[in-house]
Structures are given as structure tokens and as C-alpha cells.
Nucleic acid binder design. Structure first.
Lengths: 215, 215
DNA sequence: CAGTGTAGGAGAGTGGCACTATCCAACTAT
DNA sequence: ATAGTTGGATAGTGCCACTCTCCTACACTG
């Protein structure tokens, strides 16, 4: 298929596809002549994943490129591919070590992880990815704003996401090959975030009405 | 306190504070002379909330202004204030009704809400806020990308967020006055989102290693 | 095979947004 | 007195995801 058809079938403008090609988010098509190229279903799938990451996941183009590079890196084993890809997913700023509040936030985070039995030692926590840093940063912010976030406040969240993780991995395991599993893991991590956030708001609205009544 | 001190105590540059004043995110200070104004603890608190919404919640300035307007609107009762504020929180595009996939996505969402016993009729679902639309849009995207999201795939998420909502509302109820409760509800909705997302990634990493082993 | 239209590559341009730099008149501290 | 600071107004900056323009090389049509 030609660029125009790729555009029609994906709903993405040709100009934007050209931009993605330039940015290295899409492999160039098979050159048919000096000025024409042929694209296939693989390009379409890739393009949809790119759109999902950028539009749904609000992932910057640079990060998306890194994620895709990790997904397609045949040098790495499945586990490394997944780790590298998820590592490249956007995460806020690392905690500010100069801020004394970071120290106690880290303490809170560690206490929570201990209680949950996750990532038992310090090395695992920092090496496993940026999520631990994201959590510490979030706790610092909450504390600075005067909102409570002791271990007891966070524990219900941790227990809830534990169930979610089980469900996520069940879905991933439905895929046959490691390659598919890795891609699915990245896609589902990103794509279920809006599901999670919107369901949380719905659940809050429901619970709020249950407690305080309508109006 | 003067603008410079407000800046020092909040860690926000004077230039940015001036920008927020201009944009109506902060009430102007009490004018002392023609060229000087006095700010108080209330301004500091408001400024921190603004920073949290914009930096942590990535809420656009325009939306933040609407949220703050709702919070401070004395014409409304507490329930309405909360509803209006949460409504103004950012949400992706509304579902594209022209797309036939929207129809079946809505069906999936409805089935999920029925199973959970949330927002029993159609009117409630659309009037309660944009979260229902967010959910439908997310389901459409997942389906288009070929990822499963039947009711059975979503139900674990819904059950998990149900627990989270209970915990959230427990926190809100710790606050004494309705005013504080409304502000806390908005702040916690926004500020716990990064906590939720980072914990989910940690839990996924943990579960992934549990199933597939390290490396 | 001429004519007309389209494909696709390259680079510059656009628009939105969250700031930020500059200027200036009015004030404050010494 | 005078040097520095304050705060308001305005214009500018930097980033980023596109998007527009131009141009040449083709591909169909008669």
C-alpha cells in the first residue's frame, strides 16, 4: 500500500506519517521507484501503536522512539526488551535529593514496599525502573501540599494495583510468542492508564454519592 | 508578605507568580501602595495547589482556572462545587459518535457499570461527569488497536478502583468543613494519580518477575 | 507520447502553551 | 539623596507536535 492508503486506513494525515517517518518512529517503506514506497500491514500496526502512545499515552515523540527501538531490538532477550521499553516510558522528574523531604518520602515508599513484599532490596528498587522514583516524587509533592500520605494511606492503593497487575499479566500471557507478549505489555501499560483513571473517577463519584447523597 | 517572599516560600519564580496572577489563578494581593501588594498564607496555599495541578496533574492553565473558580464559588453548595470542579478537570476528547466502534464500546462500558451497580441509568452516566466519556474513548482506542477489552477484562480494574474510592473518601471525610472536603477531594483526585500509576508499574514489575523470573 | 495529476521527500513554518525577559514608574532602605 | 527593589504590563522564548510548501519523479489517460 502507498502512503495515501496507509493514511486513509489509519486515519492519520499523510503529513503526520511523513513526520513520523522522518523521526524514525516508522520504518521507511520498501522503495518501489525513486519517488514511491510501498507499506504493509506491519507499518499499519506500528503506526497505530505510535498513535496510541502519543495520543492516548501522551508520550513525547523522543520517548516513543526509544520504546519502539527497545521493542524491535533483536539483540535483547524478551525480559530485557520489556525492561528497556518500560524504562523509556515517560516518568516525571527524579526526586530532588537536595530536598530534605525526599529523605522521609523515600522512607515512606520503602515502608510501603516492605509491607507489600515488593522489590526487597534497595538495588532492586532503583534498578527496576523509574517507577520507584515517580512514587517518591509523588509522595514529596503530596507532603509539601499538606496532604497525608503515610504508609496507611498508600496501602489501599498498593493492594488495589496488586490485583490489577495480576489481571494485566493474565492478559499478557494470552499471547503466544515472547515478542507479542512484550509488545502487549507495553501497549497495555500505556493504553489501560486512561481506563484506570476514568474508572477511578467513576468509582469516586459513585462512592461520594453513596455517602453524601445526590445533588 | 511581598511577592518576592511568596516566591521564596513556594519555590516558584516571581515571573511565574505574576503570570498566574495575570491568568487569574491567584487572587491579586491586597494593594499596599500603587506599586506594592501584600500576600498572605491563603495565597501561598492556593499557589501550591496551582503548582500541584499544573506540574503534577499536567492540567492546562485554563482548566485549572475553571477548577479554582468552582472551588471558590460561594453560590454553589458543596456537592455542586465538587461536581463542577471535577468536571473541569481535564479529560480526553469525547467519544466520536460517527465511529461505529463507539456504539459497541458504549455497550461494553454500560455492561461494566451495570455489573458494578454504578450510575444505574443513562442520564446519570452522562450527567455525572466526563469520566464515562473518557472510559468509552479509551475502550474504542483499545479495540481499534486490537487489544481485548471485554467486560471481563475491565472488571478487575473496576473492582480495584472501587476499593481505592472507598479509601479516597475516607481521607476526604477526615476534613472537618465541607469547604476543606471539597478542596481535598479535588487535590487528592489529581495528586494521587501519579501515585496510582507508579504503583501500578511497580506492581506489574513485581508480578512479571514472579511469573517470568528475573533477567 | 504528451498532458495531467499524484506520490513522496526535505525543510521551513505554524500554533499552542507555559513560562520568562525586559522595561518602567513607584516605592523602600540606608 | 540615591541605590536597589517591587510589581505591573508587554513582548519574547523555547519546546513540541505537527503542517505547509515546494519540487522532482513518476503513473495513468487519451
Amino acid at each position: 500500500m502507498r502512503l495515501a492508503e496507509l493514511s486513509a486506513r489509519s486515519g492519520v494525515s499523510t503529513a503526520t506519517i511523513k513526520y513520523y517517518l522522518r523521526e524514525g518512529l516508522l520504518h521507511p517503506g520498501r522503495r518501489v521507484t525513486a519517488t514511491q514506497a510501498e507499506y504493509d500491514e506491519e507499518h499499519l500496526r506500528r503506526l497505530r501503536l505510535v498513535r496510541a502512545m502519543i495520543q492516548v499515552g501522551r508520550i513525547p515523540v523522543n520517548s516513543a522512539r526509544e520504546v519502539l527501538a527497545a521493542l524491535g531490538d533483536d539483540e535483547l532477550g524478551p525480559g530485557e526488551r520489556l525492561g528497556t521499553a518500560v524504562w523509556a516510558l515517560p516518568h516525571g522528574p527524579a526526586p530532588d535529593e537536595a530536598d530534605p523531604a525526599t529523605e522521609s518520602a523515600r522512607h515512606t515508599a520503602d515502608a510501603l514496599l516492605d509491607r507489600m513484599g515488593w522489590a526487597r532490596d534497595k538495588a532492586e528498587r532503583t534498578e527496576r525502573g523509574p517507577a520507584y522514583g515517580m512514587l517518591v516524587t509523588a509522595i514529596v509533592t503530596l507532603t509539601r501540599l499538606g496532604y497525608p500520605c503515610a504508609v496507611d494511606d498508600l496501602a489501599p492503593y498498593a493492594r488495589a494495583v496488586e490485583q490489577i497487575a495480576v489481571s494485566d499479566l493474565d492478559v499478557v500471557e494470552r499471547y503466544a510468542t515472547p515478542d507479542e507478549q512484550v509488545e502487549a505489555a507495553v501497549a497495555l501499560t500505556v493504553l489501560y492508564e486512561p481506563v484506570l483513571l476514568s474508572l477511578r473517577r467513576l468509582a469516586e463519584a459513585e462512592e461520594s454519592i453513596r455517602r453524601f447523597g445526590g445533588a
